[in-house]
Design a protein around this nucleic acid. Structure first.
Lengths: 329, 329
DNA sequence: TTTAGCACTTGAGAAACAATAGTGCTAAAA
DNA sequence: TTTTAGCACTATTGTTTCTCAAGTGCTAAA
């Protein structure tokens, strides 16, 4: 069991460590705890025994353990009001009615990265909820056309397609008409199947250059389902004292490049979730906070990556503010 | 004046240093130079006097100076044939006829970054050569429309536009018709002027919510002229031994984030240009190699950033290969 | 239960030292 | 005149040793 006083002590240690990044000694807390350093030491000892605190070496001050942060996040911290300055900066984005939600998310996370000095990620994915509403083809010149696909949710994707010189423009028109007839209303996830099993056999019969045309459209559509990744403020996390080591920095920058890893941060749960240290797949020295959003049939994840020694209360408040705003649109 | 033998010596030193990243001593070159270390030392001395070599400290081996690299690049190195493996990897991209040039550039530079372990940048800019060919509006629901703009060169830009609830859909239609009538054929750079000075006054007369509509379209079109930046392999440059220092790493990663700096690498000259150390605005410890491309009215810059100690011959050959391919399209 | 006092531990930084890799110079050899 | 061998000299790098400061754990008294 953890007493009230021990909780208070843990709170002070976590918050001091968040500020200073230095192990916290018993003397420094005498004032706040209104008791002697010896008393604090014995309480610290207990908190260490039950795994909430750690020492960096035998005679160092204490540092919160992963479990300690977890306890702090789950039981001690209380999300506050949005602080005035943070509020101000975000409001101008969030309240800008002429911005599309998608841009609001991108911009907001950019701002949050600046405000907090942590790294933020926006991971967007065109969801299968989107149904193809219209395919349009605009000829550019003899060998190039632009194909535009619009979904019922307002997503647009376009793709320039190179058509070798010996394809008849009438055949292109025919193919597009066919695509439009068969593909409208299909979920974007199944477009490639429809293309392969319904459209390919038909054009194979009456279009001479069917191979070429099929390939061109196939690559165009497969691009459509691509995920988008945006990382803001890579440098911020490097500035943290825990990354005062070239190898660690190299490691984390590599992780940001590795598309797989970044995509792995996709959140499935709907709340704001906190993954401390080994709880995330990213790096044992960081905390990742993520939440999922769904808007206009596009679903995605916004995430914030900072040191475990993170300003949890502030960050949570910021993310909640954004999330509420997105959801209420 | 630099004698034949001194040039040979400089070549050996540069190439050895490129490989090993360690100052080159006189003994190590006896074999290749077929003379004693003392002779080499006196030649090194001369090369140092005229500023082509440097010492890191009084009793260290020699390192090429900035001027030394410049001399090497201008007078000594000879671009080679593309090496087999490099060739193979690039060809599959470059020869893929169904890829658009733009994607070929992006992909190629990604590959080059992997092959060389340097960082590459692709900077694209929609050029004023593009004329608006068609504006299309697709209604999504009561409050959202998607506007699509296609240029004669095949560029497509789309933008979701939020329309407040109290705007009449007929008024939207009227506005779009007007835009289409007045804006087609305009260069994309002047679209915003046409919008402001020709279209705004007209809709102000007969469209009730003209302010709202105007603003929506204005922001949509202004996005159209945005530049795009793509950076590949940030981590690569960090792995170089010259970046064995946290502050240096932090500095260069910050530079990659700073949009201004990255945009500053835009190249105006048409050739393949080499900026060694202080010759570039990026960082004194790196060399930036850039070249401009223009394709379908879009102009841009491809750049490669590596240590000054760079495999110049190989890199130049690679970039020339890409450039030739783009230009001959 | 709390506190004062003290012995003890560790990391970080400074100083001292040796080993190494290289130079510059001089005088002899080619 | 050019090249080379030999030698004294000098930073750098890594290692060891030492001291200092910060903080702990334990014990005995309040």
């Amino acid at each position: 069991m953890v007493s009230k006083r021990q909780e208070e002590l843990l709170k002070l240690i976590v918050e001091d460590y968040i500020k200073t990044a230095r192990p916290v000694g018993s003397k420094a807390l005498c004032d706040s705890m209104k008791c002697s350093s010896a008393t604090i030491r014995s309480e610290m000892n207990y908190l260490e025994e039950i795994g909430l605190l750690e020492k960096t070496h035998i005679s160092s001050g204490r540092v919160p353990s992963e479990k300690g942060y977890r306890y702090y996040v789950d039981n001690i911290m209380t999300p506050r009001e949005l602080n005035g300055e943070d509020m101000l900066k975000l409001q101008t984005i969030v309240d800008n009615k002429s911005l599309v939600v998608n841009d609001i998310i991108l911009k907001s996370m950019e701002i949050i990265s600046e405000l907090t000095h942590y790294t933020t990620i926006v991971l967007g994915k065109k969801s299968s909820l989107n149904l193809v509403q219209k395919v349009e083809v605009i000829p550019i010149d003899k060998n190039n056309i632009v194909a535009i696909v619009v979904t019922d949710k307002g997503h647009v994707e376009h793709k320039s397609i190179y058509i070798p010189g010996d394809v008849d423009s009438i055949e292109i028109k025919q193919t597009v008409d066919l695509i439009n007839k068969l593909i409208v209303g299909t979920s974007i996830d199944s477009v490639s199947e429809v293309l392969e099993y319904q459209i390919k056999p038909i054009i194979a019969q009456y279009v001479k250059q069917h191979e070429v045309l099929y390939n061109a459209f196939y690559t165009a559509f497969s691009d459509f389902t691509n995920e988008s990744v945006r990382v803001n403020g890579r440098k911020n996390i490097l500035m943290q004292p825990e990354f005062n080591d070239t190898d660690k920095i190299r490691d984390i920058i590599s992780k940001f490049e590795d598309k797989e890893i970044v995509k792995n941060i996709k959140e499935e749960d709907n709340g704001i979730n906190i993954y401390i240290g080994s709880e995330n797949d990213f790096d044992d020295d960081v905390t990742v906070i993520k939440t999922k959003y769904t808007i206009n049939g596009e679903e995605g994840t916004i995430a914030l990556i900072g040191p475990k020694r993170m300003e949890y209360e502030r960050v949570i408040t910021l993310l909640e503010y954004i999330k509420d705003n997105i959801d209420s649109r």
